[in-house]
Amino acid sequence: MYELLMSIKNDYKNIIGKKSIEALEYYIFGYYQGVKEIKDATFFERFLHRLQNKYHVYSYYNWKHIILWQSGLSDELAFNNFYDELDEFMNSDVPKLEITDGRNETIYKLLYFNRLRPILIVGSENKLYRLYHLIHGYESVSNNSDINGIHFSLQFQKWIENKYSVKTGQDWYRIINFYSEIEEEAIKNLYELLNEFLIETTGKNLEENARLE
Results as ranks from 00 to 15, higher is better:
residue 7 S to I: 15
residue 112 Y to S: 07
residue 6 M to K: 15
residue 8 I to Q: 08
residue 133 H to D: 10
residue 180 S to N: 03
residue 137 G to D: 11
residue 111 L to P: 04
residue 124 S to H: 07
residue 197 F to S: 05
residue 130 R to L: 01
residue 86 L to T: 00
residue 57 V to L: 06
residue 144 N to G: 10
residue 99 I to F: 06
residue 160 I to R: 03
residue 126 N to D: 12
residue 16 I to R: 09
residue 51 L to G: 01
residue 148 N to T: 05
residue 16 I to P: 06
residue 184 E to S: 07
residue 98 E to M: 15
residue 60 Y to T: 13
residue 79 F to L: 00
residue 129 Y to R: 09
residue 3 E to D: 14
residue 106 T to N: 02
residue 143 N to Y: 12
residue 79 F to I: 02
residue 142 S to N: 11
residue 12 Y to I: 10
residue 8 I to E: 05
residue 168 T to C: 05
residue 60 Y to W: 08
residue 38 I to H: 08
residue 44 F to K: 10
residue 72 G to L: 04
residue 106 T to H: 01
residue 148 N to C: 08
residue 124 S to C: 03
residue 26 Y to F: 15
residue 121 I to L: 10
residue 127 K to Q: 13
residue 83 Y to A: 04
residue 53 N to M: 13
residue 43 F to R: 12
residue 146 D to A: 10
residue 133 H to K: 06
residue 117 R to F: 07
residue 50 R to I: 13
residue 144 N to C: 05
residue 22 E to H: 12
residue 168 T to M: 06
residue 93 D to P: 00
residue 59 S to L: 10
residue 123 G to P: 00
residue 135 I to Q: 08
residue 2 Y to E: 13
residue 63 W to C: 03
residue 143 N to G: 14
residue 194 L to K: 02
residue 185 E to L: 12
residue 35 V to L: 10
residue 159 W to K: 04
residue 95 P to R: 09
residue 101 D to H: 06
residue 4 L to I: 15
residue 52 Q to H: 04
residue 92 S to G: 02
residue 153 S to G: 03
residue 128 L to M: 08
residue 98 E to I: 14
residue 202 T to N: 05
residue 142 S to V: 12
residue 180 S to V: 00
residue 184 E to R: 09
residue 62 N to H: 09
residue 139 E to D: 10
residue 11 D to L: 03
residue 153 S to H: 13
residue 78 A to V: 01
residue 104 N to Q: 09
residue 54 K to A: 06
residue 68 L to N: 00
residue 103 R to D: 05
residue 152 F to T: 07
residue 79 F to H: 02
residue 3 E to K: 15
residue 149 G to T: 10
residue 100 T to M: 09
residue 172 W to G: 04
residue 62 N to I: 05
residue 104 N to T: 03
residue 40 D to F: 12
residue 93 D to K: 02
residue 160 I to S: 01
residue 171 D to K: 10
residue 33 Q to A: 11
residue 45 E to T: 15
residue 208 E to K: 14
residue 168 T to D: 15
residue 15 I to F: 03
residue 91 N to R: 12
residue 112 Y to Q: 09
residue 200 E to F: 13
residue 136 H to D: 06
residue 44 F to A: 09
residue 25 E to C: 08
residue 188 K to Y: 08
residue 135 I to S: 09
residue 169 G to T: 08
residue 146 D to P: 00
residue 111 L to W: 02
residue 110 L to W: 04
residue 125 E to W: 02
residue 52 Q to E: 15
residue 95 P to V: 06
residue 153 S to E: 07
residue 115 R to N: 07
residue 117 R to I: 11
residue 175 I to C: 01
residue 70 Q to C: 08
residue 183 E to T: 12
residue 103 R to S: 12
residue 158 K to R: 14
residue 79 F to W: 03
residue 174 R to V: 08
residue 102 G to W: 00
residue 64 K to S: 04
